[in-house]
């Protein structure tokens, strides 16, 4: 990670953590504005922050991680694009899903290490370990997909990558939310406990800006129209210098 990006993360992380799911635009938008976040994607010479798409990933992911009550990705995308371009918002939701999955995983692992049953922490039971390992893989896939899409956006045309990334992240929501709730038992099903801030948003984001059927069909049509022999050469050409 570059130094400026690390600084951005170090600035944003505690603020989003503090504001959390209860943040509202009326009450808290000014705090985000002080850091220039709504102008994240506006070029510097137009008075913006001048962030690239990996900066966007960093901020959007943290918004997801802390289940921030303000839709900062939507604000940033609107300022940059002058509207909520479907593709960019699909990318934004992918980043938020990636963050929220990591946060739900962290909660679940911590809970499994702390909660005791049968005289030992849940995390000692192999069945629990294996479910959480599967969850971790899905969270990792969503995060890598978000990064791949961000890189493609910085390169230019990212239609393929955004479709693939949103689809992959959507699929990770299923395993992630299921395992997170299972591991937490009844406490995770309460309004008081923090998990639902993450999982209820995850279910919402999976539907927004393209559900699985939508993106898999678009992506599939695209791949089939290009033809089998073009699949691998196209895939590699998209990342090669």
């Amino acid at each position: 990670m570059s130094d400026t990006r690390r600084m951005l993360a170090e600035m944003v992380d505690p603020l989003f953590a503090e504001l959390g799911p209860d943040a509202t635009e009326a009450k808290d938008l000014s705090r985000l504005e002080q850091l220039g976040l709504p102008l994240l994607l506006v070029p510097e010479d137009e008075g913006g922050f001048g962030g690239d798409w990996i900066d966007a990933l960093t901020v959007f992911r943290l918004a997801g991680y802390h289940a921030l009550g303000i839709d900062i990705p939507a604000l940033a995308v609107e300022r940059a694009d002058g509207g909520q371009c479907e593709q960019t918002m699909a990318f934004a939701r992918t980043c938020q899903i990636a963050g929220a999955l990591d946060a739900a995983l962290a909660l679940s692992v911590a809970y499994a290490n702390e909660r005791q049953q049968f005289g030992r922490p849940l995390g000692k039971f192999q069945a629990v370990q294996q479910s959480l390992a599967g969850f971790a893989c899905e969270a990792a896939a969503a995060n890598c997909a978000a990064m791949g899409a961000a890189q493609a956006l910085d390169r230019g045309d990212a239609g393929f990558e955004i479709a693939a990334a949103k689809l992959r992240a959507n699929r990770a929501v299923e395993v992630g939310t299921t395992v997170a709730h299972q591991v937490h038992g009844a406490i995770g099903f309460t309004q008081e406990y923090a998990l639902h801030h993450l999982t209820r948003r995850l279910w919402q984001w999976r539907s927004e800006y393209g559900n699985d059927a939508y993106w898999s069909r678009r992506l599939g049509e695209h791949v089939i129209e290009d033809g089998a022999d073009a699949f691998w050469p196209n895939l590699t050409a998209r990342t090669d210098p």
């Binding site: 693939a164 993106w215 898999s216 069909r217 599939g220 895939l235």
Partner: peptide
């Protein structure tokens, strides 16, 4: 590509997305 149908399109899309992710 010879037997076009929406279900196959979706399967291809899903597997392509996964291949793309795993490669990264």
């Amino acid at each position: 590509s010879v037997h076009r149908n929406p279900e196959l399109d979706m399967l291809v899309g899903r597997l392509a997305a996964e291949a793309w992710t795993l490669r990264l």
